[in-house]
């Protein structure tokens, strides 16, 4: 640790003590930093960039994946009963509680006090929660009133590294 440094940053969620202080970095006046600007032509002496008129705002994943921010929540998957639907252990689920569950929807259901990810089967008056892995049996639901659907899964985020 460089003794001359006076700037510290605390790691979030930890009590501050010198033991877990992280050095932000040395204040080096010669260090160069790349800055990307929304406008491409900043040099007044040059020609304006022909792309300037076409600059649009950056793409936002939030906007793309979250239609109703008030009703959207993220959940973490634990277990492998849904691998057939492309949902793996540790994946992130985007769940929209405002959507109506339909036959075939991937849903979060409340089962025995836990939030469980399942595929909803609802056809010809028959209701069940299905796994997407032959090793797991479906959970039959006797009465619709007994089934509490917490939300509808709209996306899965699977990290590859």
């Amino acid at each position: 640790m460089n003794a001359s440094l006076s700037t510290f940053i605390r790691k979030p969620g930890r009590a501050a003590s010198l033991a877990n202080v992280v050095v932000l970095g040395q204040a080096d006046p010669t260090a160069k930093r790349l800055r990307l600007s929304l406008f491409l032509s900043r040099i007044s002496a040059g020609f304006p960039s022909p792309a300037d008129d076409y600059v649009e705002s950056r793409l936002s994943l939030d906007e793309h994946f979250v239609q109703r921010p008030e009703a959207t929540f993220f959940l973490r998957v634990q277990g492998d009963s849904m691998v057939g639907a492309g949902i793996h252990d540790g994946d992130l689920l985007i769940v929209d509680k405002s959507l109506e569950p339909r036959h075939g929807s991937i849903v979060i259901a409340e089962v025995h006090g836990e939030l469980t990810v399942k595929k909803l089967y609802r056809k010809n008056g028959e209701i069940a929660l299905l796994a997407e892995n032959p090793a797991y049996r479906p959970i039959p639901v006797n009465e619709e009133s007994q089934l509490v659907i917490w939300g509808v899964v709209t996306e899965v985020v699977h990290t590859l590294r």
């Binding site: 959940l75 009963s81 689920l93 469980t116």
Partner: peptide
Amino acid sequence: HTWKVRTDYPSPCYTTRWAELPIAYAK
């Protein structure tokens, strides 16, 4: 901060911390 607030019965910050998201069981 030895005097800091005591929380003997903590619960996750389900919606504001990545490390504390609710668990969706797939079992």
